[in-house]
Structures are given as C-alpha cells and as structure tokens.
Amino acid sequence: MRRILAIILVCALIAGVGVGCKKAEVTPTEQVVNLGGIFPMTGGSATFGSSCKNGVAMAVEEFNTAGGATVDGVKTTINTVIEDDTGSPEVGASAAQKLINQDKVIGIIGAVMSKVSLAVAPIAQAAGVPMISPTSTNAGVTLIGDYIFRACFIDSFQGTVMANYVWNTLKLKTAAVLYDNANDYNKGLAEFFKAGFEKLGGKVVSYEAFTDEATTVDYKAQLTNIKAANPEFLYLPNYYGSVALQLKQARDMGLNVPAGGGDGWDSADLVKIGGAAVEGGVFSNHFSKDDPSPKTQTFVKAYTAKYGAAPDSFAALAYDAAGLFLDAFKTAGSIKGSDIRDAMKNTSFVGISGTYKFDENRDPIKAAVILQIKNGQQTFLMTVNP
C-alpha cells in the first residue's frame, strides 16, 4: 500500500511540475528568409531570364558569404525562389501571388520584360513587398507605387539616345521604324525614338507595326513598305529573336541601310540567329563588359569563371538589382517591407552598371552605352550621360 501511495505522490509531483513550469523559449541564432525572382526562363526571351538568374545568384552568394544581415539580433541569410514567367503577364502575375502568399518573400527581383512587370507591380504594391526590376524600361512600371523600383534607365532616355546618335554621329536625316504594337516596351521605344529624331530635324518616313513578336515570323509586308520609303536608317525597338528575323528578311530584299535598336538586342542569340544580317547593327544598352573600371572587370572575371561566358547587361543589372536590395535590407535590419523600401529610396549604392540614386519615381539616373555588332561580337562605341 505504501509503495502505491509513493508512486501516486511522485506522479502528482511530476504532473505539478508539468502544469506549473513554462517551457523555456529558445531564441534562434540564425534564420533564412526568402527573396523572390521572376524571370522568363523559357520562351523567346529565355536568355534574358538565364542571365538574370545568374546575376541574382552571384549577388546572393556574396551577401551570404559576407555574413548576411542582422535582424533583431539574429544573423539572417537569403534563400532565392525563382519563378518562370515565360514572358507572359498572366504567368508573371500568378508567380507574384505564389511568391508573396506561399513563399513569404521579403522582396522580388523582376520582372524582366516591361509588360510582365506592369502585371506584377500592382500585386507587389498591394502586398507592401518591395520589387525592383533589373531591366523593365517602360516609364509606367514604377509609377504603379512606392514599393516599385528599377535598376535600369527608362525608354524616354534610351529612345532619345539612339535618335541623337543617328542624327549627330551617323549624320543621317531619314529613318524608318518597325515595332511590336502589342508590347509596351517596343511601343514606348518606337515613340520616343520618333519624337527625338523629329525634334532634331530628322524625318521618320515609314512607321510600321506588327502584333506579337512571340508568334510573328513574317515581316515582309512591313519591310516592303519601308523599302519603298527609302530610309537611311532602320530602327527596330524589338527583342533579339524578332530583330534577327527582321534583318535577315530586310537584307534578303535588298534593304541594306544601317540598323539599330535598344537593349532588347542584348543576347548572344542575336548573332546566332541573324548571322551576317545583324553585322554592323548598333544598339543602346546599360552595360559593356569592356568597361575598364576595376569593379566592372572584377565582376566580369568572376562571372565568366562561374558561368563560362561573359556577362551581358541583363546579368549585370540583375546583379545590381539584387545587390542594391540586399544592401538596403542590411541597412534596414528588418524584414518589414516598408523599412526595406525606405532604405532603398535613400540608397547610394555603387553597382556594376553605375551609381544608384533614385529620383522621385524610384528611377535611377544613369548613363547609357552604345554597342555595335562587329565580327559577330558586341563592341563598345561610346558612353552617353543623361
């Protein structure tokens, strides 16, 4: 009987301890948070997505290796979650919802194409999640709200840069334009080039449109009209895949005038697809691997060693966009979207493609470069300051 009572007493004491004692809380010494990326990993602009993914991966790896950030006394490092938008605004919007609601990202690097960023930005803005597009140059992207940033210059500057180059450097007086009227990027560049060229005294003798470069492969009707107008220059503010086809068809019909475009030309596949037809073409861009600055050359060497090819502007801008975001995150010492946003607004970040200081619309004021395809390679021609 005594033994039974003793057992009961011990059990009661254990139960009492269990009820009366509070479990000690253990404060984590390290944590990992998610950073999202939305890029066209498949489809007609897949080289853009691959370059951006690489640039972000390099920046995040360097950030984590350097110790990450300190948030409420806790060492915090970054895990990236990359989503493929396929070049589609609808797919990009779904990717943004997934990153924000399921992956609980503290920010989004992306999208690449302006039409996708215009679909993603309202979702990020409504959720209070900072978004920085590496390469979306349409002016409307950042106007969506104060959580939306970009790492690139905008189309009003880029279109005018090429208009000035054609008029002042090439000394040409007439031009033709062929553009995709279903894409905000292409339309914007076309309009700003035309306005800038005509303001200088030039004449746009043919202004031709097509719909959806992702599905269009025959441009002969528009090019026939352009050839009949006898321009001295052909402006193609489109992406590399369609530009290559347009120039092949133009050259086949004897339209051999100088040609140029914008940063959508920046892909090694331009030459792979277009061959001799794209030789001599000029385009505005954000970055040149031939920039002699030590910071740029260190990046070029590290990127080339890691990925087996030199970086293009998409890799450089994505590296800068991620680096800028992570620098702001470290400065803020917070995973709260508004804190990171405020730190980004006040940044003075020095990147590969320039020093970042944002204007009231969260657009950086940066220089452009003009590159030319020579012997199948991109060759630096000049830097144009704003």
Rank of each mutant, 00 (worst) to 15 (best):
156 S>F: 10
181 N>D: 15
309 A>N: 11
330 K>W: 08
132 I>F: 01
98 K>M: 08
56 V>Q: 12
2 R>A: 14
101 N>K: 10
231 P>S: 13
58 M>F: 09
372 Q>V: 10
63 F>C: 05
114 S>R: 08
56 V>G: 00
200 L>S: 03
284 S>Y: 05
289 K>R: 12
35 L>E: 09
182 A>N: 14
301 K>F: 05
14 I>K: 04
242 S>R: 01
171 K>Y: 07
153 F>G: 05
57 A>L: 04
199 K>N: 10
43 G>F: 09
164 N>W: 00
63 F>P: 01
316 A>L: 04
9 L>P: 05
156 S>N: 13
170 L>A: 03
130 P>A: 09
172 L>G: 00
275 G>N: 11
71 V>C: 05
118 L>P: 11
366 K>Q: 14
367 A>T: 09
145 G>S: 02
89 P>W: 04
266 D>W: 05
251 R>H: 07
231 P>M: 11
81 V>I: 15
112 V>S: 10
80 T>M: 10
226 I>R: 06
154 I>R: 10
193 F>E: 07
280 G>F: 09
358 F>R: 08
5 L>C: 01
327 D>E: 10
170 L>D: 11
29 T>C: 01
124 A>I: 02
325 F>G: 09
238 N>P: 00
370 I>D: 12
340 I>S: 03
210 F>I: 03
209 A>S: 14
33 V>I: 15
176 A>P: 06
118 L>V: 08
197 F>N: 03
242 S>K: 00
34 N>L: 06
46 A>I: 09
377 Q>R: 10
149 F>K: 02
55 G>I: 11
308 G>H: 08
80 T>F: 00
187 K>M: 15
102 Q>D: 13
149 F>V: 07
378 Q>K: 13
344 M>S: 00
23 K>W: 02
327 D>C: 07
332 A>P: 05
376 G>L: 04
52 C>Q: 15
276 A>H: 07
172 L>K: 13
